[in-house]
Design a binder for these strands. Structure first.
Length: 113
RNA sequence: UGGAGCAGGCGAAGCGGUCGCUUCUUCUUUUGAUGAGAAAGAAGAAGAGGAAAGUCCGAACUCCAGAGGGCCUGAUGGUCGCUAACGGCGACCUCGGGUAACCGAGGGAAAGUGCCACAGAAAACAGACCGCCAGUUUUUUGACGAGACUGGUAAGGGUGAAAAGGUGAGGUAAGGGCUCACCGCUCCGGUGGUGACAUCGGAGGCAGGGCAAACCCCAUCAGGAGCAAGACCAAAUUAGCCCCGCUUAAGGGCGGCCCGUCCAAAGGGGUGGGUAGGUCGCUAAACCAGUCGAGUAAUCGGUUGGUUAGAUAAAUGACCGCUGCUGUCCCAGACAGUAACAGAAUUCGGCUUAUGUCCUGCUCCAGCCA
RNA sequence: GCGGGCGUAGUUCAGUGGUAGAACGUCUGCUUGCCAAGCAGAAGGCCGUGGGUUCAAGUCCCAUCGCCCGCU
Protein backbone atom coordinates (compact mmCIF):
# COMPACT_ATOMS: atom_id res chain seq x y z
CA UNK A 1 0.00 0.00 0.00
CA UNK A 2 2.40 2.70 1.14
CA UNK A 3 5.50 2.54 -1.05
CA UNK A 4 6.78 6.01 -0.34
CA UNK A 5 10.08 6.81 1.35
CA UNK A 6 9.51 9.90 3.43
CA UNK A 7 12.38 11.93 4.92
CA UNK A 8 11.48 10.87 8.45
CA UNK A 9 12.00 7.24 7.42
CA UNK A 10 15.70 7.92 6.90
CA UNK A 11 18.22 7.75 9.74
CA UNK A 12 20.29 10.96 9.64
CA UNK A 13 21.43 11.92 13.13
CA UNK A 14 24.84 11.00 14.46
CA UNK A 15 23.18 10.05 17.77
CA UNK A 16 20.87 7.53 16.15
CA UNK A 17 23.78 5.87 14.43
CA UNK A 18 25.93 5.52 17.54
CA UNK A 19 22.92 4.24 19.49
CA UNK A 20 22.15 1.62 16.88
CA UNK A 21 25.73 0.49 16.58
CA UNK A 22 25.90 0.02 20.38
CA UNK A 23 22.53 -1.66 21.01
CA UNK A 24 21.48 -3.14 17.69
CA UNK A 25 21.70 -6.79 16.68
CA UNK A 26 23.58 -7.85 13.57
CA UNK A 27 23.02 -10.20 10.69
CA UNK A 28 25.87 -10.96 8.31
CA UNK A 29 26.05 -12.23 4.76
CA UNK A 30 28.73 -12.25 2.09
CA UNK A 31 27.35 -9.16 0.43
CA UNK A 32 26.14 -6.92 3.24
CA UNK A 33 25.69 -6.68 7.00
CA UNK A 34 22.43 -5.63 8.61
CA UNK A 35 22.19 -3.82 11.95
CA UNK A 36 18.64 -3.72 13.32
CA UNK A 37 16.60 -2.83 16.39
CA UNK A 38 12.85 -2.30 17.03
CA UNK A 39 12.43 1.45 17.43
CA UNK A 40 9.00 1.75 19.13
CA UNK A 41 7.79 4.25 16.52
CA UNK A 42 4.87 3.84 14.10
CA UNK A 43 7.19 3.55 11.09
CA UNK A 44 10.49 1.87 10.24
CA UNK A 45 13.66 3.80 9.45
CA UNK A 46 16.70 2.88 7.34
CA UNK A 47 20.16 3.94 6.28
CA UNK A 48 22.82 2.62 3.91
CA UNK A 49 26.55 2.69 4.61
CA UNK A 50 28.95 2.21 1.71
CA UNK A 51 32.63 2.84 2.36
CA UNK A 52 35.09 4.10 -0.20
CA UNK A 53 36.67 0.66 -0.29
CA UNK A 54 33.64 -0.69 -2.17
CA UNK A 55 34.22 1.38 -5.29
CA UNK A 56 34.08 4.76 -6.93
CA UNK A 57 31.28 7.25 -6.50
CA UNK A 58 29.17 5.79 -9.30
CA UNK A 59 29.22 2.32 -7.78
CA UNK A 60 28.46 3.58 -4.29
CA UNK A 61 25.52 5.67 -5.47
CA UNK A 62 24.03 2.73 -7.34
CA UNK A 63 24.19 0.55 -4.23
CA UNK A 64 22.49 3.21 -2.10
CA UNK A 65 19.69 3.67 -4.65
CA UNK A 66 19.09 -0.05 -4.89
CA UNK A 67 18.77 -0.44 -1.12
CA UNK A 68 16.37 2.51 -0.92
CA UNK A 69 14.25 1.00 -3.68
CA UNK A 70 14.22 -2.41 -1.94
CA UNK A 71 13.27 -0.88 1.41
CA UNK A 72 10.33 1.15 0.11
CA UNK A 73 8.98 -1.75 -1.98
CA UNK A 74 9.22 -4.32 0.81
CA UNK A 75 8.05 -2.54 3.94
CA UNK A 76 5.26 -5.10 4.35
CA UNK A 77 7.83 -7.83 5.07
CA UNK A 78 8.69 -6.20 8.40
CA UNK A 79 6.47 -7.50 11.19
CA UNK A 80 7.07 -4.47 13.44
CA UNK A 81 8.68 -1.04 12.97
CA UNK A 82 12.40 -1.01 13.46
CA UNK A 83 15.61 0.79 12.50
CA UNK A 84 17.80 -0.83 9.85
CA UNK A 85 21.36 -0.05 8.72
CA UNK A 86 22.70 -1.81 5.65
CA UNK A 87 26.49 -1.99 5.53
CA UNK A 88 27.79 -2.94 2.10
CA UNK A 89 30.64 -5.43 1.79
CA UNK A 90 33.30 -5.75 -0.87
CA UNK A 91 31.52 -8.42 -2.94
CA UNK A 92 28.33 -6.45 -3.45
CA UNK A 93 29.16 -4.72 -6.78
CA UNK A 94 29.24 -8.16 -8.43
CA UNK A 95 25.53 -8.75 -7.74
CA UNK A 96 22.95 -8.08 -10.41
CA UNK A 97 19.66 -6.35 -9.54
CA UNK A 98 17.76 -9.64 -9.44
CA UNK A 99 20.34 -11.33 -7.23
CA UNK A 100 20.32 -8.43 -4.80
CA UNK A 101 16.51 -8.57 -4.56
CA UNK A 102 16.66 -12.25 -3.61
CA UNK A 103 19.47 -11.62 -1.14
CA UNK A 104 17.53 -8.77 0.47
CA UNK A 105 14.37 -10.83 0.91
CA UNK A 106 16.19 -13.78 2.46
CA UNK A 107 17.94 -11.46 4.93
CA UNK A 108 14.68 -9.77 5.97
CA UNK A 109 13.04 -13.16 6.52
CA UNK A 110 15.87 -14.13 8.89
CA UNK A 111 15.06 -11.20 11.19
CA UNK A 112 13.65 -12.57 14.46
CA UNK A 113 11.60 -9.79 15.98
C1' U B 1 41.36 -0.65 -51.30
C1' G B 2 44.77 -0.41 -47.23
C1' G B 3 47.68 2.42 -43.73
C1' A B 4 48.48 7.16 -41.38
C1' G B 5 47.86 12.61 -39.72
C1' C B 6 44.75 16.66 -38.12
C1' A B 7 40.16 19.11 -36.71
C1' G B 8 35.30 18.71 -34.77
C1' G B 9 30.49 16.54 -32.96
C1' C B 10 27.55 13.22 -29.89
C1' G B 11 27.79 10.42 -25.59
C1' A B 12 21.22 6.84 -20.19
C1' A B 13 19.02 5.85 -28.66
C1' G B 14 13.65 8.08 -29.45
C1' C B 15 8.34 8.39 -27.88
C1' G B 16 4.59 7.19 -24.18
C1' G B 17 3.16 5.32 -19.31
C1' U B 18 3.27 3.39 -13.70
C1' C B 19 5.62 3.75 -8.67
C1' G B 20 9.26 6.76 -5.93
C1' C B 21 13.13 10.93 -4.55
C1' U B 22 15.23 16.56 -4.22
C1' U B 23 14.26 21.85 -4.95
C1' C B 24 10.96 25.93 -6.20
C1' U B 25 5.91 28.18 -6.98
C1' U B 26 0.64 28.10 -5.88
C1' C B 27 -3.34 26.05 -3.00
C1' U B 28 -5.68 23.06 1.14
C1' U B 29 -5.65 21.01 6.18
C1' U B 30 -3.52 20.67 11.16
C1' U B 31 -0.58 23.16 14.85
C1' G B 32 0.58 28.03 16.51
C1' A B 33 -1.25 33.85 19.32
C1' U B 34 -5.87 35.52 13.23
C1' G B 35 1.85 36.61 13.43
C1' A B 36 6.68 34.31 12.22
C1' G B 37 7.21 29.46 11.45
C1' A B 38 6.54 23.95 11.57
C1' A B 39 4.12 19.32 9.86
C1' A B 40 0.99 16.64 6.32
C1' G B 41 -1.25 16.58 1.46
C1' A B 42 -2.50 18.14 -3.84
C1' A B 43 -1.24 20.45 -8.62
C1' G B 44 2.47 22.52 -11.83
C1' A B 45 7.75 23.48 -13.23
C1' A B 46 12.91 22.07 -13.03
C1' G B 47 16.57 18.19 -11.75
C1' A B 48 24.49 15.30 -13.37
C1' G B 49 29.20 15.62 -17.13
C1' G B 50 32.41 16.01 -21.39
C1' A B 51 35.29 15.02 -18.56
C1' A B 52 31.09 16.72 -12.93
C1' A B 53 37.46 13.19 -12.11
C1' G B 54 42.86 14.40 -10.87
C1' U B 55 43.42 18.99 -7.74
C1' C B 56 48.17 20.56 -11.85
C1' C B 57 47.74 26.12 -12.91
C1' G B 58 44.90 30.89 -13.11
C1' A B 59 40.94 34.04 -11.22
C1' A B 60 36.24 35.68 -8.70
C1' C B 61 34.53 35.73 -3.58
C1' U B 62 35.52 35.67 2.02
C1' C B 63 38.52 36.40 6.31
C1' C B 64 43.35 37.77 8.15
C1' A B 65 43.61 46.09 10.61
C1' G B 66 45.73 47.74 5.67
C1' A B 67 47.94 44.73 1.36
C1' G B 68 53.03 49.55 1.22
C1' G B 69 58.69 48.92 0.23
C1' G B 70 63.18 45.70 0.46
C1' C B 71 65.73 40.88 1.11
C1' C B 72 65.06 35.60 1.21
C1' U B 73 61.87 32.05 -1.19
C1' G B 74 58.83 30.08 -5.17
C1' A B 75 56.99 30.03 -10.31
C1' U B 76 57.47 31.08 -15.57
C1' G B 77 61.08 31.41 -19.97
C1' G B 78 61.90 31.94 -28.65
C1' U B 79 58.91 36.51 -30.72
C1' C B 80 54.41 39.22 -31.33
C1' G B 81 49.40 39.16 -30.00
C1' C B 82 44.64 37.50 -27.13
C1' U B 83 42.63 37.27 -22.19
C1' A B 84 39.82 39.24 -15.83
C1' A B 85 44.15 36.13 -15.22
C1' C B 86 47.25 31.93 -16.39
C1' G B 87 52.18 27.50 -16.54
C1' G B 88 46.28 28.65 -21.21
C1' C B 89 45.14 29.94 -26.49
C1' G B 90 46.44 31.94 -31.67
C1' A B 91 49.91 33.36 -35.47
C1' C B 92 54.91 33.47 -36.66
C1' C B 93 60.63 32.24 -35.90
C1' U B 94 64.72 28.73 -35.22
C1' C B 95 66.29 23.72 -34.31
C1' G B 96 65.13 18.39 -34.28
C1' G B 97 62.03 13.87 -35.97
C1' G B 98 59.03 11.75 -40.05
C1' U B 99 58.84 9.53 -47.42
C1' A B 100 54.70 12.91 -46.34
C1' A B 101 50.24 15.03 -44.12
C1' C B 102 52.21 16.58 -39.57
C1' C B 103 54.52 16.32 -34.70
C1' G B 104 58.02 17.76 -30.69
C1' A B 105 61.54 21.27 -28.26
C1' G B 106 62.80 26.52 -26.93
C1' G B 107 66.62 32.76 -22.39
C1' G B 108 72.11 32.97 -20.76
C1' A B 109 77.99 28.27 -20.52
C1' A B 110 83.11 35.17 -23.83
C1' A B 111 79.84 37.12 -14.74
C1' G B 112 81.28 33.51 -11.08
C1' U B 113 81.21 28.55 -8.41
C1' G B 114 80.66 23.31 -8.96
C1' C B 115 80.52 18.32 -11.43
C1' C B 116 82.30 15.25 -15.72
C1' A B 117 82.69 7.87 -13.18
C1' C B 118 85.28 3.90 -16.23
C1' A B 119 88.61 3.98 -20.26
C1' G B 120 92.50 6.96 -22.15
C1' A B 121 99.15 9.73 -22.87
C1' A B 122 95.96 13.77 -21.98
C1' A B 123 89.10 15.81 -19.63
C1' A B 124 89.82 21.89 -19.53
C1' C B 125 95.37 29.15 -18.40
C1' A B 126 95.61 21.93 -22.82
C1' G B 127 99.12 18.16 -23.30
C1' A B 128 102.39 14.47 -26.27
C1' C B 129 101.65 7.55 -25.14
C1' C B 130 102.41 4.76 -29.75
C1' G B 131 103.97 7.42 -33.95
C1' C B 132 106.14 10.68 -38.24
C1' C B 133 110.57 13.80 -39.55
C1' A B 134 115.54 16.17 -38.96
C1' G B 135 120.22 16.56 -36.41
C1' U B 136 124.09 14.62 -33.02
C1' U B 137 126.08 10.30 -31.06
C1' U B 138 126.81 4.86 -29.76
C1' U B 139 126.83 0.03 -31.76
C1' U B 140 128.01 -2.57 -36.04
C1' U B 141 130.50 -2.81 -40.91
C1' G B 142 130.46 -0.09 -45.99
C1' A B 143 125.15 0.86 -46.29
C1' C B 144 120.23 -0.48 -44.54
C1' G B 145 118.97 -1.14 -39.55
C1' A B 146 118.81 -0.81 -33.97
C1' G B 147 119.55 2.09 -29.27
C1' A B 148 120.27 6.93 -26.68
C1' C B 149 119.94 12.30 -26.61
C1' U B 150 118.25 17.15 -28.67
C1' G B 151 114.73 19.52 -31.62
C1' G B 152 110.33 19.91 -35.11
C1' U B 153 105.14 18.09 -35.69
C1' A B 154 99.87 16.85 -34.47
C1' A B 155 98.62 13.99 -40.59
C1' G B 156 97.82 8.63 -38.73
C1' G B 157 96.68 4.90 -34.27
C1' G B 158 93.91 3.65 -30.06
C1' U B 159 90.14 5.42 -25.53
C1' G B 160 85.74 7.91 -24.70
C1' A B 161 79.37 10.69 -24.66
C1' A B 162 83.00 14.47 -25.63
C1' A B 163 89.99 15.28 -27.59
C1' A B 164 92.12 23.06 -30.52
C1' G B 165 86.42 23.30 -37.81
C1' G B 166 85.33 19.55 -42.30
C1' U B 167 86.45 17.84 -47.57
C1' G B 168 89.84 18.35 -51.63
C1' A B 169 94.29 20.46 -53.79
C1' G B 170 98.98 22.88 -53.36
C1' G B 171 103.14 23.05 -50.28
C1' U B 172 106.75 20.65 -46.73
C1' A B 173 112.40 17.16 -43.95
C1' A B 174 107.74 15.47 -41.78
C1' G B 175 103.58 18.21 -40.89
C1' G B 176 100.30 22.17 -39.82
C1' G B 177 94.70 27.59 -42.29
C1' C B 178 101.10 27.37 -43.78
C1' U B 179 98.38 28.82 -48.72
C1' C B 180 93.92 28.26 -51.92
C1' A B 181 88.56 26.57 -53.35
C1' C B 182 83.79 25.12 -51.33
C1' C B 183 81.02 24.40 -46.76
C1' G B 184 80.88 25.86 -41.47
C1' C B 185 82.14 29.79 -37.69
C1' U B 186 83.02 34.94 -35.62
C1' C B 187 82.76 40.23 -36.39
C1' C B 188 81.06 44.68 -39.19
C1' G B 189 77.64 47.04 -42.48
C1' G B 190 73.18 47.38 -45.80
C1' U B 191 68.03 45.82 -46.82
C1' G B 192 63.14 43.63 -45.14
C1' G B 193 60.18 42.70 -40.65
C1' U B 194 56.71 45.72 -34.52
C1' G B 195 59.86 41.41 -33.26
C1' A B 196 62.08 36.38 -32.84
C1' C B 197 64.78 36.37 -37.33
C1' A B 198 65.74 36.24 -42.63
C1' U B 199 68.71 37.83 -46.66
C1' C B 200 72.82 40.36 -49.30
C1' G B 201 77.80 42.35 -49.17
C1' G B 202 82.52 42.82 -46.80
C1' A B 203 86.38 41.52 -43.28
C1' G B 204 88.98 37.81 -40.13
C1' G B 205 92.42 32.23 -41.12
C1' C B 206 89.42 30.57 -36.69
C1' A B 207 88.36 32.41 -31.45
C1' G B 208 87.16 26.55 -28.82
C1' G B 209 84.01 21.02 -24.74
C1' G B 210 79.38 19.50 -22.07
C1' C B 211 75.81 19.98 -17.94
C1' A B 212 71.83 25.66 -15.87
C1' A B 213 64.84 19.65 -15.50
C1' A B 214 73.44 21.66 -10.80
C1' C B 215 73.99 26.33 -7.82
C1' C B 216 73.41 30.65 -10.40
C1' C B 217 72.64 35.30 -13.79
C1' C B 218 68.85 38.12 -16.60
C1' A B 219 63.60 39.42 -17.46
C1' U B 220 58.56 38.99 -15.70
C1' C B 221 55.02 37.55 -11.87
C1' A B 222 53.52 36.27 -6.71
C1' G B 223 51.20 38.96 0.87
C1' G B 224 48.70 34.40 3.45
C1' A B 225 44.84 31.04 3.99
C1' G B 226 40.76 28.83 1.98
C1' C B 227 33.07 28.05 1.28
C1' A B 228 35.26 22.65 6.47
C1' A B 229 36.43 30.58 3.81
C1' G B 230 33.24 33.44 6.59
C1' A B 231 28.56 35.78 8.80
C1' C B 232 24.20 35.32 11.85
C1' C B 233 20.45 32.88 15.31
C1' A B 234 18.65 30.39 19.64
C1' A B 235 20.09 27.30 23.71
C1' A B 236 23.86 25.87 27.10
C1' U B 237 28.55 26.77 29.51
C1' U B 238 32.39 30.07 31.23
C1' A B 239 32.38 35.01 32.27
C1' G B 240 37.06 31.73 37.02
C1' C B 241 42.53 30.88 37.89
C1' C B 242 47.87 31.68 36.32
C1' C B 243 51.45 34.52 33.30
C1' C B 244 52.81 39.04 30.22
C1' G B 245 52.14 44.26 29.20
C1' C B 246 50.21 50.95 29.67
C1' U B 247 55.01 53.54 26.17
C1' U B 248 62.48 53.74 24.48
C1' A B 249 57.67 48.16 25.55
C1' A B 250 56.66 42.63 25.36
C1' G B 251 53.41 40.24 22.05
C1' G B 252 50.41 39.90 17.64
C1' G B 253 49.19 41.36 12.60
C1' C B 254 48.49 33.66 8.90
C1' G B 255 55.71 31.01 4.52
C1' G B 256 60.45 33.62 7.03
C1' C B 257 63.19 38.28 8.17
C1' C B 258 63.82 43.80 8.10
C1' C B 259 61.65 48.75 7.48
C1' G B 260 57.20 51.35 7.86
C1' U B 261 52.43 51.26 9.95
C1' C B 262 48.20 49.40 13.05
C1' C B 263 46.11 46.99 17.64
C1' A B 264 47.20 47.33 22.65
C1' A B 265 43.43 45.68 30.18
C1' A B 266 36.64 45.81 26.50
C1' G B 267 44.33 43.13 24.99
C1' G B 268 47.51 38.70 24.23
C1' G B 269 49.17 33.70 25.84
C1' G B 270 48.22 29.33 28.95
C1' U B 271 44.76 26.36 31.90
C1' G B 272 39.67 25.08 32.33
C1' G B 273 35.10 24.35 29.48
C1' G B 274 33.10 23.33 24.64
C1' U B 275 33.72 21.44 19.59
C1' A B 276 25.80 19.77 19.54
C1' G B 277 22.20 22.15 16.01
C1' G B 278 19.77 25.63 12.58
C1' U B 279 19.83 29.83 8.90
C1' C B 280 22.64 32.58 5.36
C1' G B 281 26.92 32.19 2.05
C1' C B 282 24.07 29.15 -2.48
C1' U B 283 23.45 29.92 -7.33
C1' A B 284 22.16 35.17 -13.20
C1' A B 285 27.13 34.46 -14.55
C1' A B 286 34.35 37.18 -17.44
C1' C B 287 26.57 32.65 -18.87
C1' C B 288 24.36 29.98 -23.22
C1' A B 289 22.31 29.92 -28.40
C1' G B 290 21.53 32.52 -33.13
C1' U B 291 22.99 36.51 -36.27
C1' C B 292 25.90 40.93 -38.23
C1' G B 293 30.64 43.39 -38.25
C1' A B 294 36.44 43.87 -37.15
C1' G B 295 40.75 40.58 -37.20
C1' U B 296 45.01 35.45 -40.90
C1' A B 297 43.55 33.58 -36.00
C1' A B 298 43.03 33.31 -30.64
C1' U B 299 39.50 36.98 -29.58
C1' C B 300 36.63 41.51 -29.47
C1' G B 301 32.20 44.68 -30.42
C1' G B 302 26.89 45.23 -31.72
C1' U B 303 22.08 42.97 -31.84
C1' U B 304 17.94 39.20 -30.92
C1' G B 305 16.31 35.36 -27.81
C1' G B 306 16.80 32.13 -23.35
C1' U B 307 17.09 31.26 -17.68
C1' U B 308 19.66 26.32 -17.01
C1' A B 309 20.59 21.37 -10.23
C1' G B 310 21.47 23.39 -5.39
C1' A B 311 21.76 18.21 -1.94
C1' U B 312 23.96 18.02 3.43
C1' A B 313 24.38 9.93 6.34
C1' A B 314 23.80 14.01 0.97
C1' A B 315 18.02 14.10 -4.58
C1' U B 316 18.09 12.01 -10.92
C1' G B 317 16.17 5.47 -9.48
C1' A B 318 13.13 0.81 -10.59
C1' C B 319 9.80 -1.23 -14.09
C1' C B 320 6.42 -1.75 -18.58
C1' G B 321 4.93 -0.93 -23.91
C1' C B 322 6.01 0.67 -29.01
C1' U B 323 9.72 2.29 -32.63
C1' G B 324 14.80 2.48 -34.32
C1' C B 325 19.88 0.49 -34.42
C1' U B 326 23.60 -3.58 -33.79
C1' G B 327 24.94 -8.84 -33.41
C1' U B 328 23.87 -14.26 -33.85
C1' C B 329 20.89 -18.21 -35.95
C1' C B 330 17.68 -22.95 -38.80
C1' C B 331 16.78 -15.25 -41.95
C1' A B 332 8.69 -12.86 -44.48
C1' G B 333 10.95 -14.66 -38.42
C1' A B 334 13.30 -15.74 -33.51
C1' C B 335 16.74 -14.60 -29.60
C1' A B 336 20.18 -11.26 -27.27
C1' G B 337 22.13 -6.39 -26.59
C1' U B 338 21.33 -0.94 -26.63
C1' A B 339 26.77 0.54 -24.19
C1' A B 340 32.31 2.85 -22.51
C1' C B 341 34.56 6.33 -18.86
C1' A B 342 31.98 7.91 -15.13
C1' G B 343 27.86 11.07 -10.33
C1' A B 344 27.28 18.16 -9.20
C1' A B 345 28.96 19.91 -3.46
C1' U B 346 31.13 28.06 -3.64
C1' U B 347 31.54 29.52 -8.85
C1' C B 348 34.14 30.35 -13.43
C1' G B 349 38.73 30.05 -17.39
C1' G B 350 42.27 26.35 -18.79
C1' C B 351 45.50 21.92 -18.52
C1' U B 352 45.97 16.67 -17.71
C1' U B 353 44.10 11.83 -17.42
C1' A B 354 39.88 7.94 -18.39
C1' U B 355 36.39 6.43 -22.35
C1' G B 356 32.92 4.07 -27.52
C1' U B 357 32.59 -2.65 -33.12
C1' C B 358 29.73 5.85 -32.35
C1' C B 359 29.49 9.89 -36.20
C1' U B 360 31.41 13.98 -39.66
C1' G B 361 35.02 16.71 -42.53
C1' C B 362 39.87 17.79 -44.55
C1' U B 363 44.84 16.11 -45.69
C1' C B 364 49.16 12.65 -46.69
C1' C B 365 51.52 7.92 -48.30
C1' A B 366 51.30 3.11 -50.84
C1' G B 367 48.87 -0.28 -54.29
C1' C B 368 45.30 -1.26 -58.31
C1' C B 369 42.02 0.52 -62.38
C1' A B 370 40.85 4.43 -66.06
C1' G C 1 35.33 19.43 -0.37
C1' C C 2 40.36 21.39 1.08
C1' G C 3 45.45 20.58 2.61
C1' G C 4 49.90 17.38 3.35
C1' G C 5 53.15 12.82 3.16
C1' C C 6 55.10 7.91 1.37
C1' G C 7 56.19 3.94 -2.61
C1' U C 8 63.81 0.34 -3.09
C1' A C 9 65.16 -7.64 -1.65
C1' G C 10 60.07 -11.99 1.53
C1' U C 11 59.91 -7.90 5.95
C1' U C 12 61.90 -3.22 8.26
C1' C C 13 64.75 0.54 6.29
C1' A C 14 69.76 3.08 4.12
C1' G C 15 71.35 5.09 -0.47
C1' U C 16 76.31 13.14 -3.08
C1' G C 17 73.83 11.81 -10.85
C1' G C 18 78.79 7.09 -12.04
C1' U C 19 78.75 -1.39 -10.73
C1' A C 20 72.01 -0.85 -5.82
C1' G C 21 73.37 -1.86 0.16
C1' A C 22 72.45 -3.19 5.78
C1' A C 23 69.69 -5.99 9.48
C1' C C 24 66.22 -9.91 10.12
C1' G C 25 64.30 -13.94 7.26
C1' U C 26 65.29 -18.06 3.25
C1' C C 27 68.71 -21.85 1.22
C1' U C 28 73.52 -24.74 1.35
C1' G C 29 77.72 -26.42 4.08
C1' C C 30 80.60 -26.90 8.85
C1' U C 31 79.78 -27.96 14.04
C1' U C 32 76.33 -31.74 17.30
C1' G C 33 74.12 -38.34 18.80
C1' C C 34 69.81 -34.62 17.38
C1' C C 35 67.94 -29.45 17.78
C1' A C 36 68.95 -24.39 18.96
C1' A C 37 72.93 -20.99 19.14
C1' G C 38 77.57 -20.17 16.56
C1' C C 39 80.86 -20.11 12.04
C1' A C 40 81.41 -19.97 6.51
C1' G C 41 79.04 -19.14 1.91
C1' A C 42 74.97 -18.41 -1.66
C1' A C 43 70.43 -16.96 -3.84
C1' G C 44 66.92 -13.15 -3.95
C1' G C 45 65.61 -6.29 -7.24
C1' C C 46 62.66 -3.90 -14.60
C1' C C 47 64.01 0.96 -7.34
C1' G C 48 55.06 1.57 -8.15
C1' U C 49 54.09 2.76 -13.77
C1' G C 50 55.01 5.80 -18.34
C1' G C 51 57.57 9.84 -20.71
C1' G C 52 61.58 13.70 -20.67
C1' U C 53 66.65 16.24 -19.30
C1' U C 54 71.74 14.10 -19.26
C1' C C 55 77.29 10.65 -22.06
C1' A C 56 74.86 8.27 -17.76
C1' A C 57 68.66 8.59 -13.56
C1' G C 58 66.81 4.72 -7.59
C1' U C 59 68.41 10.04 -7.38
C1' C C 60 66.60 15.81 -11.42
C1' C C 61 61.68 17.38 -14.16
C1' C C 62 56.52 16.11 -15.87
C1' A C 63 52.32 12.94 -15.95
C1' U C 64 49.88 8.80 -13.80
C1' C C 65 48.54 4.63 -10.22
C1' G C 66 48.27 2.91 -5.24
C1' C C 67 48.55 3.65 0.09
C1' C C 68 48.54 6.76 4.60
C1' C C 69 47.51 11.22 7.59
C1' G C 70 45.26 16.08 9.03
C1' C C 71 41.18 19.96 8.82
C1' U C 72 34.09 20.76 10.28
Amino acid sequence: MDERLRPIERIRKQKDFTELYRRGRRLKSRYFHLVFQPNGLEYSRMAVVVSKKIGKATVRNRIKRRFKELFRRNKHLLRQPCDLIFIAQKEIPKLSWEELQAEYKSMISRLDL
